[in-house]
Design a binder for these strands. Structure first.
Lengths: 231, 231
DNA sequence: ATTAATTTGGAACAAAGCGTTTAATTTACC
DNA sequence: GGTAAATTAAACGCTTTGTTCCAAATTAAT
């Protein structure tokens, strides 16, 4: 009987940290893996396959089958017992979970080396992220083209955010100006920042969400892992 | 009495996963934070400051003081009671922990948009990572300059790794060729790969360490966090 | 039809990681 | 000397994470 309500989560309550975790039931690690499942599924879809089992997904990523199922069952029932998952169905389901079943308007701040590379990154477009503006404060950069997009002066940031309903921004500016630009982005109404600047761009309790990617930190993590693996 | 031996870790033993975690006592999150502490310390050092307290480091990163101290005390005693930490001393200590107290020879595979951006990234050099080669399979790229380095044909990969004692590689090639190149890197003797290709480059149980950075995945995580924050 | 095999769903369990708190120790300053 | 400040180290509890186990559902075969 599948008629029991699924609100078994307030059975033993106890939420000491009400604002710390955005969505209580979902582990952070699950979200990251979901994106990886999506990557594999899209690859399978291109190969023409129709159905897939949790065990096959797990094998491709070196995980346990039940972990895959548990990750998915956090959000609903997407599979068919005895059969498996429809690849297109599961793809759409995961996209809906991640919020990439629609298009996101994104702007890029900083047209240096990294900014130029990011503007041309195909993965963004393929996952529904639409680059609608590139900004820089350097006058010599303004007016130059990055692919099909022309670099605009930083002054036009606010107006573009409003006009294009921009929600996400990619921050690829020097560390020295990152904090100021982040504040302007927040004030302009941007709700999410992918921050490549090697500084802390912390939201002071606001609704701003920041995901940090520090390339030097990643290399340091690699160095540590290498040093501590042989021994 | 501070004379008790500090091997309290085998008191209740139980290591069901012997090869999964390189260094048992150190949480992964600690390593990541260590790199962030280092970032802040280097910034402080440039400002000419001599000493720092754990509470000040914590405040800069939005953390708890005791977490900073506990992270550090995983590896030894670097502070002075009643005083705090010497900035230069702690900087060197963290570098020693991370393995960046020496120079690492690094090669870059792939001279596309992302590869070009990474080759010019100052953060790598500042942390002791020395780029000693850039490789590409595209004949039209070979011979072109990335900063001071000339792009070499992929065929020379193995000889360069041996000659320059290369330990780390940055993989910035298309997904389709990532697995093959990764295998070649491992065979050549590279022990660590920073992988930007959106595919699983898993070591089949070898000594190879891989750190993945998938830019699309990061944006998807951001989208999820944004969607699930307002509610 | 009925049975057997496969596969998901979901609860229960166990362990590890993580962060905070508390007490003890050392240093600096008055 | 005594007090305040700051690190250490251990202990505690909570959260998170991954696995195991069993029930439910579908397909295929007998």
């Amino acid at each position: 009987m599948p008629f029991e309500p699924t609100d078994s989560d307030d059975e033993e309550a106890g939420r000491p940290s009400p604002a710390s975790n955005p969505s209580p039931n979902v582990p952070v690690a699950t979200v990251t893996r979901l994106a990886l499942y999506l990557r594999e599924l899209q690859q399978l879809q291109r190969s023409g396959q129709q159905r897939i089992q949790s065990s096959a997904i797990a094998k491709r990523l070196g995980l346990n089958d039940s972990l895959v199922r548990r990750d998915l069952s956090c959000f609903g029932q997407f599979g068919q017992r005895g059969v498996g998952y429809s690849i297109v169905g599961l793809t759409k389901a995961i996209q809906a979970i991640l919020g990439t079943d629609r298009s996101w308007n994104v702007i890029l701040i900083g047209s240096g080396n990294l900014g130029r590379a990011l503007s041309g990154y195909r993965g963004f477009n393929q996952q529904g992220f639409r680059l609608v503006g590139v900004f820089d404060s350097d006058p010599s950069k303004i007016g130059t083209k990055l692919g099909t997009i022309t670099v605009s002066p930083l002054e036009e940031l606010e107006s573009t955010v409003e006009r294009e309903k921009v929600e996400l921004a990619i921050l690829a500016v020097p560390a020295s100006s990152a904090a100021i630009v982040a504040q302007r982005l927040e004030d302009a109404g941007v709700t999410g920042i992918l921050n490549f600047a090697p500084v802390t761009v912390r939201s002071p309790g606001s609704g701003l969400t920041v995901v940090d990617v520090d390339l030097a930190v990643e290399l340091q993590r690699l160095a540590f892992a290498v040093v501590n693996s042989r021994g």
